[in-house]
């Protein structure tokens, strides 16, 4: 029974069966259309151009022939498959088409706002464009592992030294002894949130009380701090434009979807057991 082991034959038989079934039961199925395949010179140019884009050289005659042959088969498969209705109720195809449409509508949402419009946008959303505060500080570190039982004493001694205007020697660490113009993000990434939070509340020009971090205990002196500020539009225009476009896109997508929904009469037939309450 060699015939049963031949996968290609199985495929053809199953294909024919599916085709016949769809022909009979699917009212949308079209009759097998024209059986003529024309590969236009424009199409060949296109295949050739894609090849050229990929390999930075034109295809050889053989390579081009291969591309054309493959295109012919793809076209025939496409026609046979759509004629057989294989595209119907295929989740993959449905979602791909939705995706294409969404890409398209997203493109349409773009536009070119003037400075005035952007300035208004900044005014309405100042928190999104504020430059973060920048802090310049020094720190002295004490490692809890090395403090041991004498922890309170060592910390108290260090605080006393600082009060006298001297700088106590901390424990060796590879943490940075100082940071210049550091944003809260940078401070958090290096010392953790707890430290960054405490740093924000420190007075400028004065050594702090001991501050805890995930690493240990620190004395910190803030030497300079620039507060958060809203830069002029000229400095932040690209960012403002990006945010403005983002909003436009969101709004456009909503609008587009409600437009689409308006064109359809939608009936949902909830099964008795699943009817949502309220």
């Amino acid at each position: 029974m060699k015939i049963l082991k031949e996968p290609l034959l199985h495929f053809v038989l199953i294909g024919a069966l599916i085709f016949a079934l769809y022909q009979r039961f699917d009212p949308e199925a079209e009759a097998p259309g024209e059986t003529e395949v024309v590969v236009t010179s424009g199409r060949i140019q296109q295949l050739s151009a894609i090849f050229q884009k990929t390999w930075q050289r034109p295809p050889t005659r053989d390579e081009l022939q291969g591309l054309v042959d493959d295109f012919i088969l793809e076209e025939i498969y496409y026609r046979e498959a759509t004629a057989a209705g294989l595209d119907h109720n295929d989740t993959l195809i449905r979602r791909r088409l939705r995706q294409k449409m969404e890409f398209l509508t997203d493109d349409l949402a773009a536009g070119t706002p003037g400075d005035e419009e952007l300035a208004e946008f900044v005014e309405a959303n100042p928190e999104r464009f504020r430059k973060p505060p920048a802090t310049t500080f020094r720190q002295i570190f004490f490692n809890p592992d090395k403090l041991g039982d004498q922890r309170d004493q060592i910390i108290a001694d260090a605080a006393a030294e600082l009060a006298k205007g001297e700088v106590p020697e901390g424990h060796p660490t590879l943490l940075p002894p100082d940071m210049s113009g550091a944003t809260p993000k940078r401070v958090t990434a290096t010392f953790g949130e707890e430290f960054a939070g405490a740093l924000a509340g420190l007075e400028v020009g004065k050594w702090s009380e001991p501050i805890r971090s995930g690493f240990g205990i620190h004395f910190v002196r803030v030497d300079d701090r620039t507060d958060a500020e809203l830069p002029p539009l000229g400095e932040i225009r690209p960012v403002v434009l990006r945010e403005w476009e983002h909003e436009q896109r969101e709004a456009f997508r909503d609008r587009f979807q409600s437009e689409l929904l308006k064109k359809y009469e939608v009936t949902v037939e909830w099964p008795a057991t699943n009817t949502p309450k309220g």
């Binding site: 010179s41 424009g42 199409r43 296109q46 151009a49």
Partner: peptide, 9 residues
């Protein structure tokens, strides 16, 4: 993108 090429159908 391919259809951006001049000459493409």
């Amino acid at each position: 993108f391919s259809l951006m090429n001049e000459g493409a159908p």
